[in-house]
Amino acid sequence: MPEEPTENISGGDDGSVAAAFEAGDAGTRAEAVVDELGGLYWQKTYGGKDAFESLVRTILSQNTSDVASQPAHDALMERYGAERNDADAADDAGAEDDGDGTDGRDLAAALASAEQSELAETISSAGLYNQKSEMIIGAAERICEEYGGREGFDEFVRTEDPSEVRETLLDVHGVGPKTADCVLLFAGGRDGVFPVDTHVHRIARRMGLAPADADHETVREHLEADVPGEKCGFGHTAMIQFGREYCTARRPACLDGPEACPLYDLCDRVGVDEVGESVVDPAEAAELAGE
């Protein structure tokens, strides 16, 4: 499961069961936007993903596309996953074979003892593989040291206060706000968490849901304040899908006319010149308007 799914499927204890989306009466424009997205895409249960694997996935996805990061994740899991069927597993880091062809280690332990050059080669399709391999090994070492491995970290993410979990995650080298929020959302299933990626950052400012010059953290604060907690996770994945299908960076659907965008009436179109058919970043548009 890519942390930014092509479709709005975040999974859960049973990722195959769809949940009906009930819009209700929106109290803010941001909530109205999410409710409209609920009419376009379907909603599924959040949470249920392994916290450490979610962390690894999101690190792999940094500064790259799902098309590139997914093969890297699959290769990593095949080589280091606890359930991998590796004839040489018993030789890795002195581990003992448990009799079923695996080495019995969890993913965090396996990655904590991984050779960086080998891991870098394994995840090379994700780009920036030297940096990412260093981040992943460092995170794995810390998680093994502080939580005893994958299961202890997963318990921490699921049960502790979200603000404490977020602060702890942000203290891990290579983990930024979006990565921390994705772990909270997809592993912890926490309400009130609205991760901000490039799509969400662009759309929220273009629509006028956050200031035109807002950074990622400011956009997150506005969305989490204006969207009910139980709708934040769905809003995140639905807005990403909307950004890919309608509100793209270079040519949003509104340039083809009001009828081309289902959220046209809820959008300020900051930085979009429908007459001239040109688009600039909302921050640039705000700067030009102030001159």
Rank of each mutant, 00 (worst) to 15 (best):
R79T: 00
Y80C: 11
E83W: 08
E83Y: 09
N85W: 08
D86A: 14
D88I: 13
A90P: 14
D91P: 06
A93T: 00
A95G: 07
D97Q: 15
D97C: 14
G101H: 01
T102A: 06
G104F: 14
R105Q: 12
R105N: 12
D106P: 11
D106T: 08
D106G: 10
A114N: 03
A114L: 03
A114C: 02
S117N: 12
S117M: 07
E118F: 13
E118C: 11
L119Y: 00
A120H: 02
E121A: 15
E121Y: 03
T122P: 03
T122G: 06
I123E: 04
S124A: 01
N130S: 04
Q131E: 07
K132D: 01
E134H: 11
I136S: 00
A140V: 01
E141I: 04
R142K: 13
I143K: 12
I143M: 10
E145V: 01
R150S: 12
F153W: 05
D154N: 11
E155P: 00
V157A: 03
P162V: 03
S163V: 10
E164Q: 09
V165S: 13
R166V: 07
T168Q: 11
T179M: 14
A180N: 09
V183T: 15
V183R: 14
V183C: 14
L184W: 03
L185G: 06
F186S: 05
A187W: 01
G188S: 13
G189F: 00
G192A: 02
G192D: 08
F194W: 01
F194I: 04
F194E: 02
D197S: 09
V200S: 14
V200D: 13
R205Q: 15
R206H: 10
R206P: 09
L209Y: 12
A210T: 02
A210N: 06
A212T: 14
A214L: 15
H216C: 10
E217V: 12
V219S: 15
V219P: 15
R220G: 09
H222T: 04
